[in-house]
Design a binder for these strands. Structure first.
Lengths: 341, 341
DNA sequence: TATAGAAATGACAGCGCTGGTCATTTATTA
DNA sequence: TAATAAATGACCAGCGCTGTCATTTCTATA
């Protein structure tokens, strides 16, 4: 019923300690000893007792994921990817939804880490972009990995997984340009999220490259929400000079813009093209379906967790390429930006 | 830095054992002793070492939540509610996304419980409705709480939180009837989910009460997905005798039906009224917004966890009303079923 | 072939807590 | 006030594992 390390040891004909060494990837275990132990572990289906390991070693085998994201699909995907990696490495995942705007968010994170004795933390925006949090975590010596917007790996970002929002936004904008649009508006996400800034920059770069000077009136501040899209689109379509295309910072905003267009009896894509970003499930379910950029969130999360384990596991082979992963969301063209004719 | 039970004991002027008694809600602790200890715990901010507790007592302070639900909003809400309760009781939540249709799902659940040494499990559909799982869990003596469709508490369902889908569906159907509709169709969810059957029954009961015999052609089998709604609505609107209203088993199906109506150039709600169920965020974001029934998932989850703790905690006061919570989702009328004139 | 030095392995204590047993103190009741 | 019950403490073992350090075994070199 309950297999302990003792059982494995006697089955393999070695000491408990040696089994422990194998379990923890410690050096100084001869190959054949290692194999013997592994065989015993497999034969007996040994599952180490996490509580005992924690207690004896004073470290833990769980990592945390803090989120405050109204986008449920994003969170679910992240969880999925993180859990995949956790299962592979025998770790557990602790999730912690919270309010990023809480004044004592830093303390809350610290408390979480210390109370649950976490081995590490995966941070997504907006937490991954809060310098106070990174500083505090470094100070107490907790490993963490950040998923952030960026395109250029650098030593300073050694514990980051980069998502190249700039390039993806550039591509989307380019797609609109190729469709013949020149008056392209941009609906921003939250200012606190650097992804919003990166996407804006990509949009601007694409325009500039075509010799188009971005029109400030076409750049509407907002937040990552449906409502923001509704409002933003309304504002844009009330301009005397209206845009012929809108690039929304994410699918939710785009869906809001779509909703708004419907209210104003604007035909999509004939009178107005709309593109989103993220490829969340509902981007396929709007009418018409949204052109967007696919962000492989599950994979991103897996990589983030792998990176974390590489840092957090004391004896893991550091040989593995420690290069930073960079993901470039890819363009998905759907009906919301079909050729206007 | 690290406060142990010893520190609390000396601070409170009692023995370690007494602190332990307080921590574990054991009887035979005088009120003022209890208060003294609690004061010390608060003063020192004592956080018991979970690993040590687990190890020594051979029980754990985490519960599991298994999900396989394409509906991210539902999952997020459940997590939120479960976590609220967990924090309150000092438990942790382990999430476990999986495939409900996997052939060895029962074994997988058993493994999860045993490997992670869970104190209990919260099951939502479809897991909560799989008799094999309930049996297996009972056999190995693991506490669990199920969230299921139902209206009548009974001893047999003592570990269930009930959601009265029947009554809510009755109300929605009634709303459509009051709007003057008589040809009301029903788009079913997955057969495996009893919620689908309950909602269908509520729909049928409402019709029958009005003296309308449900038309079998108006009842379309399907699944809880957008695509199913697209297909179902298409099928219905190709009938020679078309319905004037569609009640979809959930918001996603309803959104699909909406999409389909758009494709067929059917005006909503003028030519066709559509109602959903669940009040997921996007039910407000479709065009037009969906009439639906609000399911308080966060609260439901909280109650489920509370119920679980009541059973799982050995010394918790069983005095608390052990009556089964029954939730009746409430009708939310929006534009998708506005008066057709 | 002997031997220093390195590598592999094992013996043992102890992580922080709980559960059990029993002795002792304190409160309650007749 | 004695008798009984309730509350508390003292003490120990032990949960299953890891850390430390002593010991054994191997490897390389002369």
């Amino acid at each position: 019923m309950k297999v302990t390390i003792n059982d494995v040891a006697s089955h393999a004909g070695v000491s408990i300690k040696t089994v422990s060494r194998v379990m923890n990837n410690e050096p100084s275990v001869r190959k054949d000893t290692y194999d013997k132990v592994m065989a015993a572990i497999t034969a007996l289906q040994y599952q180490p007792n996490a509580a005992a390991r924690n207690l004896a070693s004073n470290r833990s085998f769980s990592i945390g994921y803090i989120y405050d994201n109204p986008n449920a699909y994003y969170v679910i995907d992240m969880q999925r990817g993180l859990l995949d990696a956790c299962r592979k490495h025998g770790y557990e995942l602790l999730i912690h939804p919270t309010n990023a705007k809480s004044p004592d968010i830093v303390q809350e994170v610290i408390d979480l880490v210390q109370q649950s004795r976490l081995a590490g933390l995966v941070l997504t925006p907006p937490f991954s972009e809060m310098p106070h949090i990174a500083e505090a975590l470094e100070k107490i010596g907790v490993h963490f990995v950040r998923i952030i917007s960026g395109s250029t790996p650098s030593p300073k970002l050694s514990n980051c997984v980069l998502v190249d929002d700039f390039t993806a936004a550039f591509k989307i904008t380019n797609h609109l340009l190729e469709l013949g649009h020149t008056d392209i508006a941009f609906l921003c996400g939250d200012e606190e999220h650097s992804s919003s800034g990166e996407r804006l920059a990509g949009y601007q770069a694409a325009l500039t490259k075509r010799g188009i000077t971005p029109n400030p009136k076409f750049i509407v501040p907002g937040s990552y929400s449906f409502e923001s899209g509704v409002k933003g689109a309304k504002q844009l379509m009330n301009l005397s000079k209206k845009p012929s295309a809108i690039f929304a910072c994410n699918d939710e905003i785009a869906a809001g813009a779509l909703f708004s267009a419907r209210l104003m009896n604007i035909a999509i894509p004939q009178q107005l093209a709309i593109a989103g970003f993220e490829n969340s499930p509902f981007s396929r379910q709007t009418w018409p379906p949204l052109t967007t950029a696919h962000q492989p969130n599950v994979t991103i999360a897996q990589q983030a967790a792998e990176l974390l384990f590489r840092h957090a596991k004391p004896n893991a082979s550091k040989m593995l390429s420690d290069k930073q992963p960079v993901f470039i969301p890819e363009l998905l063209v759907r009906e919301s930006t079909a050729v206007s004719e």
